[in-house]
């Protein structure tokens, strides 16, 4: 599944300072749909090069990291259960830095 991932607010520093990643992620098995929960596991394993604790806490993003799926706050679409579809755009923005 083709997805566009964007990292901002300093999170890009965790993945070689690249902000926009065009990636191909496939669901764990053919039946299940890909959800945000799966994507986070994938991102952590494949894109995050350093300090993963700045990005994730337990099985979700670290509190203070905003997630937008197709420019919609993921808190409105079910957070970890948000289903992902072909060509979706997922944005991660950290708010954890100075004023």
């Amino acid at each position: 599944m083709q997805l566009t991932l964007e990292f901002g607010g300093g999170l890009e520093l965790l993945c070689d300072s690249v902000k926009i990643h065009n990636v191909d992620v496939s669901p764990n098995n053919e039946v299940d749909k890909l959800t945000m929960k799966d994507l986070l596991v994938w991102v952590r394993a494949n894109l995050i090069k350093e300090r993963p604790e700045m990005f994730m806490k337990d099985d979700s993003v670290r509190p203070g990291v905003l997630v937008l799926v197709n420019d919609c706050d993921w808190e409105l679409s079910g957070q970890l259960d948000t289903p992902l579809e072909e060509k979706d755009v997922v944005v991660f923005i950290s708010t954890l830095h100075g004023g």
């Binding site: 901002g8 607010g9 300093g10 520093l13 905003l66 937008l68 420019d71 706050d73 944005v91 923005i93 950290s94 708010t95 954890l96 830095h97 100075g98």
Partner: peptide
């Protein structure tokens, strides 16, 4: 932060 994102404001962010 959402406002800045949607308005595409140019801001700097690093620890």
């Amino acid at each position: 932060v959402m406002y800045a994102y949607f308005k595409r404001l140019d801001y700097f962010s690093t620890e």
